[in-house]
Structure formats: structure tokens, C-alpha cells
Design a protein around this nucleic acid. Structure first.
Length: 596
RNA sequence: GGUCCCGUAGCUCAGCUGGAUAGAGCAACAGCCUUCUAAGCUGUGGGCCGCGCGUUCGAAUCGCGCCGGGAUCACCA
């Protein structure tokens, strides 16, 4: 890495010139601003204390010394305390020749020993997936790709919340009013069908509450005493007691939901390596809690409920088992964490879960630590922000929840109409065209969401999401298609795509060097995205690269360049840009077309 | 009320491990297709970087205090 070498040499020069050791982080190294001549800039303000000379003179002295000791440096210019260094053409062209066509350019070659377990999606089986889940899923999938590029073995897991009071509500509603309806008999996708009964439960439940309140109960009392909720709780107890009939209904209904989820995941292009079910992990959670109770780290109250006391850690008491012995949400999370650790012995366990659960994960980690689990320290909550709509938060009560299946359908229809209007589907067969529409629709949707910093809340404006111009997925896909078109035509024209022929001393236009500089930082981008667990880093980078390539493409000829040496150089740049765009998009879980 | 997150152009977002005149896209306006894909490119206008104080040679970036918005603190998940 040339940056490392620049810093090392700069330190040596400082020592030679001023007789004092400096550490590298006393010198700031950054990319030179676009408007200023130079490739890298050393910020030497901090060194004037050592040189006892003005910033300009100090910069010039260091620049002179560097120029002598590093053949890669062609020139430098000093502006105030900024030493702007220009690297030689042989350096840049050498970089191009050494890295284009390299399968692993930008990726970490060294593999970490222990795997990372990455959880995302984590749906409840009482309703279909919505826009919030889409953010979760594509974040998780992308993060897996990014970590993989950083040399981690990633085990992608899904944790299905298939048990609990919410499922019992759907079951009860179906039992009462379902008339043995099935996805087949109703023509409704399984997850949507179950969602319908969850809504139905809540409608009736609300009516009962109003009824009781009319009879003089407080809202809180009414919520607890409504017959429907009591029945649902009864079903939960029966379920935990393994009541045969209850289990049968539960299995049947969950089966429908899974079929529905599978379809949605398939359409979204989301996959998992392993699926955990809460129904299979909550017992282990209970067992661990019992152990904690026996060794005194947890406490049992008079009514039989079990708690973790976190008050001396600045938090509150946390319920772990209800007084009737049934388990709550965190019970299974304790079991699941143990199971994951036993299954994979990972170096870290990452959970992609919304920031509304920050407190939950804080508590989970502390409880596991209290229970003496070393893997408590491995837990990392990738907390992402809420997705809001122009009219505000999504509310199921107000029917403003954006359904995942509907949304993808709309995106697809939109990709189709826009593509047809532009006449880009004219030469494609039906299958091929559908594939392209799907690629563009998903590209638009995924990029729209991933370009935003995960930890921030984001606004999902449907009007903007179907815009395919500017900073969008389709813009980047289009750039890739343009590149491939150029390369195809180049082959036909008989150009040789070997960059070995390029002379290290071929002159470089500023626009060509701009692209090279963007390509040069790709490995840093991959690392930064991994360190920060942020697909947005990759998204913003690949947009910048695509934009840069389009400028290059528009400003100067590639195939039509008559000078062979220049033409081959530009083709190599084109091909390299295409490779990096493709790799970046792959890290976002987005496909790039050959034509569009 | 306690804890945590966010506040940058009309709108959506970058930049935040301190550095040069704060960047994109959308929207508005003006140009560029007989030449490699116009889902493109070029240009114009648009900013007390929420407010104040502090640290520093230097603050959108770090610290403290306000103001505004959000999340959470369930025998819900």
C-alpha cells in the first residue's frame, strides 16, 4: 500500500530533517481534493512544532526529501500546510496492470479461523413480511457478503418466532371463525391468510375491551379480563404442555406461513444457511434460567415468576419466566444464543434487529454475562433505524403497512413499464425481459434502502423509489451494461484484452486517473464497510465510481480512439471498472445486467 | 422522568477516526444524441451544517449545556 509507504517515508524524512521521532498518526494523510493537483496530501501542520519553521517551508522540505527517496513520486506542490503529492504514471498504470482481472481484488485473502453467526430476518409467524422486514433482510444479506469479502466465514441464520402469545391469537381466531379455510381453498398466500386472522383477533378483542369498559372496568382491567385474551393465554399454556390438538393446529398454520415466507424470500433473493425455531430453543432457555435460579444469579418471586435483577447496573428488573411458568421473548433468545455458540463456536454473533430492541439486547447481553457465559461478549447488535413513510410511521391499525409482496410486485410493474417505454426490452424474449425487469426492480429497491446509513431512520418515499435516474440502483446497473456493451464491441473489433501490452509510461488524462484513484480505494472501502458493518459505505462508493465512469465515457472515446496504446489502456480501465462495480453490487445483493 | 439515537440545500441523503472555498441525487432553469446505450453528460441558482459555550493553529466533525424530533423502560414480541 502506497499510503503506508508514504507515511513511513515521511516519518523518516522528519527524523532526518529535524532530528525527532514522530509516529505516523502525527501526520495526516488523505486523498487530495478534487480541484487541487495531486493524488495524496500530507497535512503537515502538526509538524511545525517539530520543525520550528513555517508550514510552507516545512512542507517543501519534507516534499523535497520524499521526492528523492520515493521513485513513485513524480511531483509535489505545497499550498499552505498541505503537501500535495502526485504519483508517477508508472505507479498508476502498474496498479491497473497488477489488479485488473484479479478475482480477489479488494477482498481479504486471509481467512479468519472462527466463523461469524449472523442473524437476520427473524419473522413472526402471525403476519406477512413488510417493508421493515425488507430493510432487515437486505441489510443482513448484504452484511454477510461484506463480511465474507473481509475474510470471514459467515453463517447466515434466521430465527423464526413461531411460538408465543401472538401465534395463539391467530390460532384462536382461526379456530373460531376460520371454517377450515386453507390457502388453497381461499387462494390467499399462507402468510397473508394467517395475518388475516391475527387482524380478526384484534378486532374482536378490541370490541370486547370496549364492552367491558362500558361496564365500568378501566382499560387496563378490560385488556386483562377480555375473554379472548384469556382464551389465547389458555392456548399458550396448552401449547407448552404439548396438547395434541393445539400442536396440530399450530403446525398446520405455521406450515402455511413458511410456504408464504419461502416465496417472499425467493423473490427477494434472500437465503439462509440455517433456520432456528423459537419453539425448539425456548426450552433450553428455560433450562439455563433454572440453572441461574439454582446458583443464585436469578431470583424467584412469591408468585413463581423468575427475574434478573439488573438494578445495580443502571437497568431494571427483567422478567424471564411468567408466574404461570410460560416463557417470554427473551427466554428463547437466551437458549438460542447458547445453541448457536455450541453449534458453531463463533468469534462473534451478530443480530440484525431494529433499534426499537436496543434495550432488549442490552439486557440479553447482561443476563448472559450474569449467567457466566463467555459468549456474552461476542454478541453484537446491528441496530438499524425504522423505515417511515411520507405520511409517517407504518401503522397496521391505519392500514399503512407496506406489504413486502405487494411492494415487489409494484416495483416489478414499474421496472417493466419504464424499460418498455425506453424501448430497451424490444429485442428481448419474454423470459429474458422478465428477468431484466426483476433485476432492475430489485436493484432499485435494494439500493434505495442500502444507500442509507443502517443506524439511521429512513424515509421510504414510493415516488422516489421508482425513480431510476441519478443516485439509484438502476443507474449503476445501466453503467455496468454500458461497460459490457463496450467490451463486447471491442471483442468484435478484434482488440486484445491483455493489459500486459500497456506501457508503464503511457500518458494519463486527468479523467483516466480519476477512475484509477476511485478503483484504487476499493480495498479500503471493503474493509471500512466490514469494520463499520455498513452496506451504505459500499453503496455510496459504487455510485461514485459509476458516476466517474460515465463522465469518462462521455468525455473521451474508447473504442474510437485511434492510438492503440491509449485504446487498450481505456479498455482496461473500462473492464476494471466493470469488475469493481459488479463486485460492489454483489456485496449489496444486487445483480448487474449485461444489457439494459 | 431515566437511558439511547437523530438534527447538513425546498425534499432525500453523503461527509463525522478534526484540515483547504461543506458534496451528491431529486425538484427548478439552461445546454448536449448523423459518433462507443441520453436509465447518460455539462452548466446555473439554492446552506448562520438546530442554537450557544468550550478544546484546537484549525470544528459540520471532539466536549458540555440548551432546543426540536424519535425509540425504549410490559407477566408484548
Amino acid at each position: 500500500m502506497i499510503e503506508q509507504k508514504l507515511l513511513e517515508k515521511a516519518c523518516e524524512c522528519v527524523k532526518q530533517l529535524y532530528g525527532q521521532e514522530v509516529v505516523q498518526n502525527q501526520i495526516g494523510l488523505e486523498k487530495t481534493k478534487k480541484e487541487i493537483a495531486g493524488d495524496f496530501t500530507l497535512v503537515i501542520f502538526p509538524l511545525v512544532k517539530i520543525s520550528h519553521k513555517s508550514p510552507e517551508i516545512t512542507a517543501r522540505e519534507i516534499g523535497d526529501a520524499l521526492l528523492k527517496s520515493m521513485p513513485e513520486i513524480a511531483d509535489f506542490k505545497v499550498i499552505k500546510g498541505f503537501l500535495n503529492i502526485t504519483l508517477s504514471n508508472p505507479f498508476w498504470i502498474g496498479f491497473l496492470k497488477n489488479n485488473t482481472n484479479k478475482r480477489d481484488f479488494g477482498f481479504q485473502r486471509k481467512q479468519h479461523q472462527k466463523p461469524v453467526v449472523l442473524e437476520y430476518s427473524s419473522p413472526n409467524t402471525n403476519k406477512p413480511l413488510h417493508l421493515g422486514h425488507i430493510r432487515n433482510n437486505i441489510l443482513g444479506y448484504s452484511l454477510a457478503e461484506i463480511l465474507r469479502a473481509n475474510g470471514y466465514k459467515v453463517i447466515r441464520v434466521n430465527l423464526v418466532n413461531d411460538r408465543g402469545i401472538h401465534i395463539c391469537k391467530s390460532m384462536l381466531a382461526y379456530h373460531k371463525w376460520g371454517n377450515n379455510e386453507t390457502p388453497v381453498s381461499s387462494g390467499i398466500k399462507g402468510d397473508h391468510l394467517i395475518g388475516k386472522y391475527y387482524v380478526l383477533f384484534n378486532e374482536h378483542y378490541k370490541a370486547e375491551i370496549h364492552n367491558l369498559m362500558d361496564k365500568g372496568l378501566t382499560e387496563e382491567e378490560a385488556e386483562k379480563q377480555a375473554p379472548l385474551i384469556l382464551e389465547a393465554q389458555d392456548i399458550l399454556r396448552k401449547w407448552e404442555a404439548k396438547d395434541d390438538e393445539t400442536l396440530k393446529l399450530w403446525e398446520k398454520m405455521n406450515g402455511w406461513v413458511y410456504a408464504g415466507f419461502d416465496e417472499t424470500y425467493r423473490k427477494l433473493g434472500i437465503t439462509f444457511d440455517k433456520i432456528y425455531y423459537e419453539s425448539a430453543t425456548y426450552l433450553l432457555g428455560k433450562k439455563l434460567i433454572k440453572e441461574g435460579l439454582e446458583n443464585g444469579t436469578l431470583i424467584e418471586k412469591d408468585d413463581g415468576s423468575v427475574w434478573a435483577d439488573l438494578r445495580n447496573e443502571g437497568l431494571d428488573e427483567k422478567l424471564l419466566l411468567r408466574s404461570d411458568g410460560t416463557s417470554v421473548y427473551i427466554t428463547q433468545d437466551i437458549g438460542t444464543a447458547q445453541l448457536r455458540f455450541d453449534d458453531f463456536h463463533p468469534s462473534s454473533m451478530i443480530y440484525v434487529v431494529g433499534n426499537e430492541q436496543n434495550y432488549h439486547f442490552d439486557v440479553l447481553q447482561r443476563i448472559l454475562k450474569k449467567l457466566g457465559k463467555e459468549y456474552a461478549a461476542y454478541i453484537h447488535h446491528l441496530s438499524y433505524g425504522m423505515v417511515e413513510l411520507p405520511q409517517g410511521k407504518m401503522k397496521s391499525r391505519e392500514g399503512t403497512v407496506v406489504d413486502a409482496d405487494d411492494l415487489m410486485e409494484e416495483m416489478f410493474a414499474n421496472a417493466e413499464s419504464t424499460t418498455r417505454e425506453l424501448g430497451k426490452a424490444d429485442e428481448l424474449g419474454g423470459n429474458e425481459a422478465d428477468q431484466l425487469f426483476r433485476t432492475i426492480a430489485l436493484g432499485a429497491l435494494k439500493y434505495f434502502i442500502l444507500k442509507v446509513d443502517p443506524k439511521k431512520n429512513m424515509l421510504f418515499d414510493p415516488r422516489e423509489s421508482i425513480d431510476f435516474n441519478g443516485n439509484t440502483g438502476p443507474f449503476i446497473q445501466y453503467t455496468h451494461a454500458r461497460i459490457q456493451s463496450l467490451l463486447r464491441k471491442s471483442m468484435v473489433a478484434g482488440n486484445v484484452h491483455t493489459c500486459e501490452k500497456i506501457s508503464l509510461h503511457t500518458p494519463l488524462l486527468p479523467i483516466e486517473k480519476e477512475i484509477l484513484k476511485k478503483l484504487y480505494i476499493f480495498p479500503d472501502v471493503v474493509k471500512q464497510a466490514g469494520d463499520e458493518m455498513s452496506p451504505a459505505v459500499v453503496a455510496n462508493y459504487v455510485y461514485d465510481l459509476a458516476k466517474g465512469f460515465n463522465q469518462f465515457y462521455q468525455e473521451i472515446p474508447v473504442l474510437k480512439e485511434e492510438d492503440t496504446e491509449k485504446r487498450i489502456l481505456r479498455l482496461a480501465l473500462t473492464s476494471f471498472s466493470g469488475e469493481v462495480i459488479k463486485k460492489s453490487m454483489a456485496m449489496l445483493g444486487i445483480e448487474v445486467p449485461q444489457k439494459m
